[in-house]
Design a protein around this nucleic acid. Structure first.
Ligand SMILES: [Mn+2]
Ligand SMILES: [Mn+2]
Ligand SMILES: [Zn+2]
Ligand SMILES: [Zn+2]
Lengths: 143, 143
DNA sequence: ATTATAATTGATAATCAATATCAATAATAT
DNA sequence: ATATTATTGATATTGATTATCAATTATAAT
């Protein structure tokens, strides 16, 4: 975990965009980096509240989006559920197996699938930029 | 297109569930079956309005869900966009390439990918039920 | 150091799709 | 026919997300 590198990336992104650093931003990034994977804004907000009781919900929301903007975070939207966020920096691309019963996320990656996806796009004169692959079912404990 | 078979499936599903058939239900199903692919409730509602000016938005919404329930329709949710629905009966499973510029949906299927998905799940002691694979990028016209 | 500027914050309001509510209506069973 | 119960259509509510805005704070200019 390259916490300090992530912070550098964030700061240089702010500078590049003419944005300012604030104590809230530092706290949000710091807390996000050591939080659980696939966290919601709510959950992150509640953790942050302990250290920074005055922090606002909207501020957390705004800044997690900013972290997505600079490639440190990635948003995961499943149906109509609230968005979840995971670290992206130095975390290789992966897809998810999602348990329909307990909600568990299992991270997976299959290079053969990734390669076939590219071929599939190419065969349709389509230029792929990103993709989402989610397999829903039952995890070992739930089946 | 097996319109009459779809209607039979719908009617028997209603009966099985102790639900009643209505003129609205017949119209909604009929209109859905000949409508464009990947249609939203809004769009379907606006088409229906022409023939049935008194039909309610909630009724269309409720009944498209019912059609999903009996396997005639399938819901597609992309990010925060409003849900889209497509025919499922006698329409083989497929995935989508989605153009980020014009919104075009290209339907694709790769049996090798499907097989690898099953293996991926199995390797993780996961029992797959359904999956979603969407590749976002630029279609030929937009790139 | 003071002042001017412009971005940020936190509280709250607005948005918007989806869903719930409910009185009136329509379909089915008795 | 009458009773029963599901359905409809209008509208209200929900819930996540985004927008608004006055107060505050960070940065630049003086
Ligand atoms: Mn993940
Ligand atoms: Mn399709
Ligand atoms: Zn599970
Ligand atoms: Zn396009």
């Amino acid at each position: 975990m390259a916490t300090s590198e992530s912070k550098e990336i964030f700061l240089s992104y702010l500078k590049k965009k003419g944005l300012r650093n604030t104590s809230q931003r530092e706290e949000i990034l710091h807390t996000f980096l050591k939080a659980d994977k696939h966290i919601t804004v709510d959950e992150l907000y509640n953790v942050l509240k302990k250290k920074c009781p005055d922090i606002g919900y909207a501020t957390v929301h705004r800044n997690i989006k900013l972290m997505c903007g600079c490639g440190l975070a990635d948003e995961i939207k499943i149906g109509t559920q609230k968005a979840r966020y995971e670290q992206k920096y130095e975390h290789e691309h992966h897809d998810h197996l999602i348990c329909l019963k307990c909600g568990k996320f299992i991270e997976v990656k299959d290079d053969r699938i990734e390669k076939l996806q590219d071929k599939l796009a190419e065969a349709n004169d389509f230029k792929p930029i990103r993709h989402k692959m989610e397999i829903y079912g039952l995890c070992k404990k739930c089946s």
